[in-house]
């Protein structure tokens, strides 16, 4: 049985991340992980005419880098799983129009990164594909314009706000051995703890992350100490302490091995409020920095939980509360280096 407990999938085949590709914008390139990305752009436009084209360019560049790193071409892919934050996931749709790989569009807000990874693995495990390409993207300006205000509008944001990461991350998954093995995934349920403030996503999403993490431990019988690192997607400086508190109540202590991609991706002195957010936040940190740490032997087994706020501005204006979700994937250094 691949279903373990209530919400956790244990893959029966050995599945691997064969290659990854990341592309980011200027603020991320200037951040502490700037060296770990494949491609960096010096300005938000990424040499394109408008913001949406810029984000699409980021996703295409990340995929190109991923293909190059794997020594593969798009026609060798059986399936393309992809998503982003923009209405009707048009960044992913238009990228799929270009690369011509059979495509499943996905949306889980900022949890899409781990959603694509978990499902890609499940589809290979179920023999529906041999090699799957995943990609997610977000762009600060496309997100501002869709979810908030025009980029140049001079409104004041509170300290609880997050800064959408400009970037894209792509990965190729197959059962061909590599150093990074995907072992399990825990699929989250939608939680809503009554937060209405779109400038406080950390507080809104922390319960979803806590629920997925606690369920993962219950399903697998594991404990926090079984992981070198438990990393959340974009809870930021506001949501991270709430997550630790919520898990402490359930008797799980994550204080020594929890980190948040939204806090890893920028330096504290960058103008990013409480930290980074967006699909690309967890993707570029995981595919760039975290896998590198695994390759260097600093981390052996990590649990990446990408968190998403499943709202849109219309729901916020109608005074609805914000539903949230979190999906987690367990990545391990493969036995014997995987080769």
């Amino acid at each position: 049985m691949k279903l373990t407990g209530k919400q956790t999938w244990t893959y029966s085949k050995p599945l691997y991340i064969n290659a990854t590709g990341t592309a980011v914008g200027p603020e991320e390139a200037a951040g502490p992980l700037g060296e770990t990305y494949d491609i960096t752009f010096g300005d938000l436009h990424c040499g394109q005419e408008n913001w949406e084209l810029a984000e699409r360019h980021l996703m295409e560049q990340a995929i190109d880098a991923c293909m190059k790193n794997a020594g593969k071409t798009p026609d060798e892919m059986d399936l393309f799983l992809s998503g982003d934050l923009i209405n009707q996931t048009i960044i992913a749709n238009y990228t799929a129009r270009k690369n011509q790989i059979p495509y499943l569009g996905m949306f889980g807000a900022c949890s899409t990164s781990m959603e694509t990874l978990a499902l890609a693995s499940a589809l290979i495990d179920g023999d529906f594909a041999n090699t799957v390409l995943t990609a997610v993207s977000s762009h600060n300006a496309t997100a501002e314009r869709q979810f908030r205000y025009p980029t140049e509008y001079g409104g004041q944001k509170p300290d609880t706000a997050t800064y959408t990461v400009t970037g894209a991350g792509a990965s190729i998954i197959s059962s061909k051995p590599s150093p990074y093995q995907i072992k399990m995934a825990t699929i989250g349920r939608v939680l809503d703890l009554g937060i209405t403030d779109p400038f406080d996503m950390g507080s809104a999403m922390a319960p979803a992350a806590a629920d997925t993490i606690a369920t993962h431990f219950e399903d697998t019988g594991r404990s926090p100490s079984d992981y070198d690192l438990i990393v959340t997607g974009d809870l930021s400086a506001v949501g991270s302490p709430i997550l630790l508190e919520l898990l402490r109540e359930k008797n799980y202590d994550l204080s020594s091995n929890h980190q948040d991609c939204g806090l890893l991706v920028y330096r504290p002195d960058q103008p990013v409020f409480a930290g980074g957010s967006g699909c690309a936040c967890s993707a570029v940190v995981t595919y760039g920095h975290l896998l590198k740490e695994m390759k260097e032997g600093k981390l052996k087994r990590i649990f990446v939980i990408a968190t998403g706020a499943l709202m849109n501005p219309m729901m916020v204006q109608q005074k609805e509360t914000i539903p949230t979700i979190a999906h987690g994937v367990v990545i391990e250094v493969a036995d014997g280096g995987g080769v």
Partner: peptide, 12 residues
């Protein structure tokens, strides 16, 4: 600023 930023944003 409110008018100009909206104009800039939707130029595309």
């Amino acid at each position: 600023n409110a008018v100009t930023s909206a104009a800039l944003e939707h130029k595309s």
